[in-house]
Design a protein around this nucleic acid. Structure first.
Lengths: 133, 133
DNA sequence: CTGCGTGCAAATAGTTTGCAGTTCA
DNA sequence: TGAACTGCAAACTATTTGCACGCAG
């Protein structure tokens, strides 16, 4: 039932807690934030485990990761299709956005310069309507 | 003559060394790399000073900064106009690219979702022709 | 002169790892 | 049962800061 836990790994209480939280929140979170939120809901999970679980999920392609301009890692439960994010720099709420034209632009530009094995990062940061209020 | 050092600050040997190196190299560098390269050319500059000088230059808008997927900060001497980078993930060589259409897309998307005070990050990573050889 | 700049060493912050004890399959 | 998992504490990495001294203006 609690599918989502990568196969070949164990389904532990801690992992379920992390997964459950990730699926509930709507934006990106740092491992530290997740740790705090877990404690608030009385979920007994160590910070180390939060980090390890997140890494596990990233490897399994079940969560999406990016970085704050300041350098901390952010994680978010994420739909599998390729897209980018519009992230509130205050509360972390994120909106998934698509931009097929942008993808094409990136590939074209890279190709024109002789670059191969292209990958790209597009993040839009702003203050969401709620936080701006 | 060695203009480029932000006004209101002193023109020291160390700052000139950092600036000179930045202007010579063509790609992004981490503070640590710059520090090593400076020592190799017998420029006596402390790591702390490298960090402080880079911060100074970023504040003055004279260098451009971004992050490696791993999280370390990268700095590059950079032309003043707004643009993005196509960075070789192997050697750090970077090409400045412009994409007015992308800028507009980012602003429009953000606005549609009620976000304000927009900023964006667009980085394209790839392997340059030389490194692919 | 005089205060900004420098560099060492120590402090931080985020993240990772070693290891002994615990737990799932 | 026994390998995988957990969590504490310690290790690490990148970066920042405190402070006494030095040099630019």
């Amino acid at each position: 039932m609690s599918e989502a836990i990568p196969s070949g790994t164990r389904n532990t209480r801690q992992r379920s807690e992390v997964l459950a939280l990730l699926r509930e929140v709507e934006g990106f979170r740092t491992p530290q934030q997740l740790y705090v939120e877990l404690r608030q809901r009385d979920a007994q999970v160590g910070l180390t485990t939060v980090y390890r679980t997140l890494q596990l999920l990233v490897d399994a392609g079940e969560v999406d990761t990016t970085r704050l301009p300041g350098g901390e890692q952010l994680f978010r439960w994420c739909s599998p299709s390729h897209h980018h994010h519009l992230v509130c720099r205050r509360c972390g709420t994120a909106v998934e956005v698509k931009g097929p034209a942008v993808e094409r632009w990136a590939d074209r530009v890279a190709g024109e310069h002789g670059y191969t094995d292209i990958d790209h990062t597009i993040e839009i940061f702003g203050t969401c309507a709620d936080c701006a209020a």
